[in-house]
Amino acid sequence: MEHSKNELGKPATIKDIARALNISITTVSRVLRDKPDVNPETRKAVLELAKKLEYHPNQVALSLVTRQTHSIGVIVPNLDYFFATAIRGIDEMALEAGYTVMTSQSNESYGREIINTQRLMNGRVDGLIVSLSSDTLNVDHFRRLIQRNVPVVFFDRVGGDLHANKVVLDNQAGAVQAVTHLIEQGCRRIAYLAGPANLSIGQQRRDGYVTTLQRYNLPVDENLIVYSEFDREFAYRATLQLLDDYRPDAIFAVSDRLVVGALLALRTRGVRVPEEVALVGFNDEPVVSLLTPSVSSVAQPAYEMGRMATKLLIQQINSDTSLPPQTIVVKPELVIRESSVRKG
């Protein structure tokens, strides 16, 4: 269209809009960035003319003015089902808000997490969405960013003492649901495959496990609590050792990756599931519904958690003032299948 060009036949700019309406470039910029304190009539005139001229912002120039690149950095421990689903939520919310997403994975390594953080910041992302690696004991690299007012949101695996926005699952409640269900099925010696000892989600799920046993006046046997990496082979070996030495009648695992290893070990020994040993996992990955028997698992809304984290980050990026940190707690839901239901 003719009116999409200025008098030199080039795409319309902020200067063209300002000149046509006899207002400052700064005012036009504030309207187009949806900033407050602009006269409503002026705002309406700017938006109408921008639409008529088919104005499209120059993102490079805009980033120099706003010091924003409209890109978000994401650091996750791995790309398993939970994190892949969360990233899909992050990406879709970011797309709706006009942001692009740069994703990296730490592979459960503290050193790699630091390198990924530095590279994303060197790429001038506007903020970070982070889930900590299982190897991360020191969060000073994120603390320094927060002290510099870099927008950072943590989700799922978070640094407890960091003054930042967080989106977390009520892990303790999820464990309570799982262990209560197993007890109601008649299980009394419930083992817990706990994951890494330092990881917050494992600790919180352990708290739910212990609290539930105590509520039902069942002993807490430390021999039935096994710490490990998120590794199926480790869970396989740990389950064989449990069967040999302590013989549980149920196993609750901190993740579905571990519960699959446990199921393979039970099959190796010819142990009937759930009649002799019942199983419950955590994450409700698609694979557990396809196993024989199908495996009960605590579901967490990964997609929604990703969207929530992104919304918090974008609010923080676009705020002219420092917003107080929020912690959003999401509720889990136990999905009961064949592996934990004892008949009669």
Rank of each mutant, 00 (worst) to 15 (best):
residue 2 E to I: 15
residue 125 V to E: 03
residue 101 V to E: 10
residue 137 L to Q: 13
residue 140 D to M: 10
residue 263 L to W: 04
residue 315 Q to A: 10
residue 27 T to Q: 15
residue 328 I to R: 08
residue 58 N to P: 13
residue 44 K to E: 15
residue 75 I to Y: 09
residue 225 I to D: 11
residue 214 Q to I: 02
residue 196 P to H: 07
residue 14 I to L: 12
residue 103 T to R: 04
residue 240 L to Y: 01
residue 18 A to G: 10
residue 41 E to W: 06
residue 172 Q to W: 00
residue 328 I to Q: 08
residue 342 R to W: 06
residue 215 R to L: 08
residue 174 G to E: 04
residue 287 V to Q: 07
residue 42 T to Y: 07
residue 295 V to K: 03
residue 324 P to G: 02
residue 87 I to G: 02
residue 122 N to M: 11
residue 252 F to T: 00
residue 254 V to R: 00
residue 98 G to P: 03
residue 327 T to M: 10
residue 298 V to W: 04
residue 118 Q to M: 14
residue 341 V to L: 09
residue 287 V to K: 02
residue 171 N to Y: 03
residue 218 L to F: 08
residue 58 N to L: 15
residue 179 V to Q: 03
residue 96 E to H: 13
residue 177 Q to C: 02
residue 40 P to I: 12
residue 130 V to E: 07
residue 57 P to Q: 05
residue 191 A to R: 00
residue 170 D to W: 06
residue 105 Q to F: 11
residue 60 V to S: 13
residue 34 D to G: 01
residue 29 S to I: 05
residue 238 A to P: 06
residue 149 N to G: 00
residue 34 D to A: 07
residue 179 V to S: 04
residue 322 S to H: 09
residue 70 H to I: 00
residue 328 I to M: 11
residue 337 R to E: 05
residue 38 V to K: 09
residue 279 L to S: 04
residue 172 Q to K: 15
residue 203 Q to H: 15
residue 51 K to R: 14
residue 281 G to R: 07
residue 32 L to T: 01
residue 116 N to K: 07
residue 198 N to M: 11
residue 290 L to H: 09
residue 115 I to T: 12
residue 19 R to N: 13
